[in-house]
């Protein structure tokens, strides 16, 4: 009798766990995924653009499966208990209050599950944190409230300020409001890029979700991280450390271009076609949109 109950309960719980996997597989993990930015009504990670983000997605999926299973298991067990042992169905309560075996089991099993999580998680962590040989270095300096980018290896590329586009400007430019800036950080595709992040006043955080990067910009400290983007395109992120009133209004825009285009951009001193006009235009927008 006893063991039959136990088995039934476990079956109910496991069925629920499996059901949650199915739901996750069909709904959760297969949500529409935009390129380089959030998607409308999205409920899943942004699409991976770098190897780090790919690994991150894998670990995220693994952990999600595990924790969804745990939640469903607990829910199933609770449902079973609530039905089977409600007052009507079981008027006389048992008096058991100890069972060493089961107590050991529910200590050991979570430990094992956690080991399963910890191993890939550590691998991801070290992969993400250990900076490989990089070819390009860029520097992002947080300021209240915009980002200033520079290319320490190229002295003739002036550092430039990247200000957000306001609503009309972004509509005109056909870019998403609160993501778009007037001057994107330009980097080459399929190249390992090192990012130096720091701040000159309040803390900020340089974030590009689809790169799997979030690095705090702290005054007095230079943080380093790296990325390598697979595909050309524009990638967006937003400041992710509270920095004052315009915290929501200092987006990050990264333009990933072909290696040739990047070389040209550098050669032209930070402009694709060498026209000074583009730069002037940028500066013009900067002053207009500067939120101070």
């Amino acid at each position: 009798m006893r063991s039959k109950n136990t088995i039934l309960a476990l079956v109910v719980a496991l069925v629920l766990a499996v059901a949650s996997y199915v739901i996750l597989a069909f709904v959760g993990l297969s949500g529409e995924r935009g390129e380089g930015m959030a998607v409308r009504g999205g409920f899943y990670l942004q699409e991976a653009a770098t190897p780090v983000m790919e690994d991150l997605t894998t670990v995220y999926n693994l952990v999600t499966y595990i924790i969804a299973g745990i939640v469903a298991f607990v829910l199933g067990l609770m449902a079973y208990i609530m039905i089977r042992y409600r007052e009507k169905a079981n008027p006389v309560p048992s008096k058991t209050s100890h069972n060493t075996l089961i107590e050991v089991v529910w200590t050991i099993v979570p430990v094992l599950i956690l080991l399963v999580i910890a191993v890939p998680s550590m691998q991801l962590l070290y992969f993400q944190d250990r900076i490989p040989e990089t070819e390009v270095t860029v520097k992002a300096v947080g300021n209240t409230w915009n980002w200033e980018y520079s290319y320490p290896d190229h002295e003739d590329v002036d550092s430039f300020v990247s200000n957000p586009l306001d609503k009309t400007q972004s509509t005109d430019a056909g870019k998403p409001y609160l993501f778009a800036t007037d001057a994107a950080l330009v980097v080459p595709v399929n190249t390992k890029v090192k990012v130096l992040v720091t701040s000159v006043n309040n803390m900020h955080s340089w974030t590009v979700p689809s790169f799997g990067i979030k690095m705090d910009a702290v005054p007095g400290i230079i943080n380093e991280t790296w990325f390598e983007v697979y595909e050309e395109g524009t990638y967006y992120g937003q400041c992710s450390e509270i920095c004052g009133i315009k915290h929501y209004y200092m987006p990050i825009e990264v333009e990933v271009v072909s290696k040739e285009a990047y070389a040209a951009w550098i050669a032209n001193g930070g402009s694709f076609d060498g026209s000074v006009a583009e730069n002037n235009n940028m500066t013009g927008v900067q002053t207009a949109a500067a939120p101070k």
């Binding site: 991150l56 670990v59 999580i117 998680s121 991801l124 962590l125 993400q128 799997g212």
Partner: peptide
């Protein structure tokens, strides 16, 4: 708690 994922 997974530091790698927490970067996201």
């Amino acid at each position: 708690a997974n530091a790698g994922v927490d970067a996201y």
